[in-house]
Every structure is written in C-alpha cells, then in structure tokens.
C-alpha cells in the first residue's frame, strides 16, 4: 500500500501533528492512498503548478484542483468540474469510479472549534469497493482518530441514480464499524 502526498506528489511520511491535520484523502481502487494535510493552507497556488481564482490555497476546492491536476489530468470531465469549483460533482465523479474518500468538513474556528472538535465525512462506494481499498482503510485510522463526529456515507452506484445510506460515528469508531459490517457480510454471503 502506497501513501502519497497529492500536493507534492511525494511519499507521505506524516508526523503526529500532521496526522491530526488531515484535509482530504482518497483511496484508489488499487489501494493507493492519496492524501494531504492542512500544512498547505495559505501557500501560493503556483507552488503546486496550478492557477485559479485565488492566489493561495484557501478552501477545499483549491486542494481538489491541485489533486485533479496532479493525478487526474486525463479526465477532462473531472477537470471541468474542478475548474468550475463544483466540489460535489468532483466528489460524486470519484465515487462513481469506485474511489473511497475522506473529507475534513470542519468549518468552525476559534473557541467553537476548540470546544467541539473536528467533523469529517467518510464516503464509500459500498457496492464496488475493492479488497485493496478495504485493507487500506485501516491505514487511514490514525488520521481520523481525532475527529469527534464522522458522517459515514455508503453509496450504491449501480442504480440509475446515486443512493446513499448515512450514519454518524466518532472518529475511532467509523472505520472499525464499517469493516466489521463489511467482513460480516462477506462471511455470510
């Protein structure tokens, strides 16, 4: 299993602090993890070879633009969504391609953040997830342990429209609960 910093395109070797500051992570169908922490906030976009409406990395879509340019350059549809700053269309495009996604959705700052912690989303294309991705999910655990509340969304992508079943878990429960359920299903089917 490879872990790559999608902002710098180098192998990711996080410190404990960086593990607490994950911004976004993708698990590709082959099990490769592409991720980035918040250490890139406020850095110039040109450092990453990408231009956009903002000069510095500020919001989620800035990370998404860089990620798309670095790893999905051949996917014109995806690049178009990224350029439109159409964040959720990018996310759903990835889900339809069988990519697992973790997103730090915390928006609070200051005292509210200190008191109430981080919120995240774990988005899983449940019907097409691969064994490699299931193995890689465990490697993501140390990064999301610190989250107070995670929205776990299991997608069904084979129907004409995308359907999802959502529940909320704490950071230390989200992945173990999903894995237990998935392995349980595999044993009974």
């Amino acid at each position: 299993m490879k872990m790559i910093d999608f902002m710098t395109k180098t192998e990711y070797m996080p410190s404990n602090q960086e593990k607490q500051d994950i911004k976004m992570a993708l698990i590709l169908p082959d099990g490769t993890i592409l991720l980035a922490d918040k250490s890139h906030d406020d850095k110039p976009m040109r450092n990453y070879g990408v231009t956009g409406p903002r000069k510095t990395v500020e919001v989620h879509v800035d990370y998404v633009r860089i990620l798309c340019e670095h790893f999905f350059r051949d996917d014109q549809e995806l690049l178009e969504y990224a350029n439109q700053e159409n964040f959720y269309a990018v996310i759903m495009h990835w889900i339809q391609q069988g990519i697992v996604l973790f997103n730090n959705s915390t928006t609070y700052e200051g005292p509210t953040f200190i008191l109430h912690g981080k919120h995240g989303q774990l988005l899983i294309p449940d019907d097409i997830i691969t064994e490699e991705q299931i193995e890689s999910l465990s490697s993501l655990q140390p990064f999301i342990d610190y989250f107070r509340d995670i929205e776990v969304k299991k997608f069904t992508t084979q129907e004409p429209n995308i359907h999802a079943a959502t529940e909320f878990c704490s950071g230390n429960e989200a992945i173990p609960t999903y894995l237990k359920e998935k392995v349980g299903h595999a044993k009974t089917s």
Partner: peptide
C-alpha cells in the same frame, strides 16, 4: 443547482441520526 442531495427516512436513535438519500448532479 449543480448538486442536490434529497434526504429522507430520517431516523433518530440515542442522539444520533441515520438517513437515506438520493443524489442528483447536473451533468
């Protein structure tokens, strides 16, 4: 809208929620 999620069948149990949804993307 570029993205719309329609949430239904909301269930609250022990202070936490579960729900189902359908997602539409303009594409």
């Amino acid at each position: 809208l570029a993205f719309l999620e329609l949430v239904y069948n909301i269930i609250e149990k022990d202070g936490t929620y579960r729900y189902q949804s359908m997602i539409g993307i303009s594409q």
